[in-house]
Simulated scan of single mutants.
Amino acid sequence: MNPAAFKLYLIWCLGAFLSGSIPFGLLLVKLAGKGDVRAQGSGNIGATNVMRAGGKALGIATLLLDAAKGFLPVFIAKKFGFAPEFLAFVALAAVLGHVFTPWLRFQGGKGVATALGCVLAYHAPMVVPAFGAFLLCLLVFRYVSLGSVVAALVLLLTAMGFLGAWARLPVQEGMAQWPILAWALLVGLVIRKHSANINRLVQGTESKFWGSSRNV
């Protein structure tokens, strides 16, 4: 890769990182006069905790905006003609921005909604198996955290082609290792951010999405 192209890629990734770093959940709850979402519930700035702190409307708005901030940088880069091998790293940068937002001392959310937006812009069929796995886990076990972790793992399997060619990564022959690396890092990041939830699931103390108090 020549230096000019590398510099251009870095600029796009920086733009995606900044897009992902916008803490919509925190901003919406504050603008609604509901206080600091980080001081409520699980302390997370994502849609589930926003719903707890500010109601369903704010939670849905946060989900859509968090997805949009992942969708837009990947979608725009795709429209500019960047190859899928590079788009995967734009997606990774957007999720990194959400998880390590510089405006909150690099403490952000868990990246699920932003990752969803990235995948929709990157290659929408990849979403189908992961979303199905999420819904199944949520309906059967009622744990958002479990659904998110399982969906992330299914997304990686889909990207690698284990669930069929119809949903796998649209990359050039011989180049698949690079986007798979990016998606593997993205999935690993999302799962790592759910480590506390995983510990509670193992211990049987994780709260469910409906019923008692929640820690998602």
Score class of each variant (00 low, 15 high):
L156S: 02
D66S: 07
H98W: 09
I198M: 07
V99I: 11
L27R: 11
A68Q: 04
G25A: 09
L87D: 01
G147R: 04
L64V: 10
S21Y: 02
F86Q: 08
G109R: 06
Q107Y: 13
I11G: 01
L10F: 14
P129V: 08
A130D: 01
A68F: 14
V128R: 01
G188A: 07
N215P: 01
I11R: 03
R214H: 07
T205D: 02
V127M: 15
L163M: 00
V127L: 15
P129H: 05
F71W: 13
K69M: 11
I198L: 12
L8A: 15
L169S: 10
A16F: 05
V149H: 00
I180S: 11
G35N: 02
F17P: 04
L18S: 06
F86H: 06
I191A: 03
A5Y: 12
Q40E: 13
I180C: 12
V95A: 02
A93I: 07
L31G: 04
G33T: 04
G55N: 10
G188W: 10
T101M: 13
F141S: 11
C13Q: 04
L10H: 07
V202Y: 13
R142F: 08
G117P: 01
L31E: 06
A133N: 10
I180Q: 14
L26K: 03
H123R: 12
N197T: 06
L104A: 14
N199Y: 14
A165C: 04
V154N: 08
K208E: 07
T48H: 08
P102W: 13
P179K: 01
N2T: 13
G164E: 05
G15Y: 07
V50Q: 02
K7F: 15
G55S: 11
F75V: 05
S19N: 08
K110A: 03
V127Y: 10
I60V: 15
V112T: 06
L18T: 06
N44Q: 09
F24V: 09
I198T: 03
A83P: 06
K78W: 11
V37L: 02
Q203F: 01
G211I: 12
L92P: 01
T101F: 12
G111Q: 02
H98T: 05
G33W: 08
F141V: 14
A5G: 11
A68D: 05
L138W: 07
A53K: 00
E173A: 15
R52Q: 12
L18D: 08
A16W: 01
C118H: 03
S19M: 12
F71N: 04
A130C: 05
L163D: 01
K69I: 09
M51K: 10
T62A: 06
L153I: 14
S207F: 09
I11F: 09
K56P: 03
N44T: 07
L169D: 03
L65F: 12
A16C: 11
W103F: 15
K79R: 15
Y9H: 15
A133D: 09
F162G: 03
S212M: 12
F141P: 02
T158L: 05
W178H: 07
A165Y: 08
L189P: 00
G81Y: 10
F100S: 12
L153D: 03
A47S: 14
A121W: 06
G109N: 03
K79D: 12
G164Y: 08
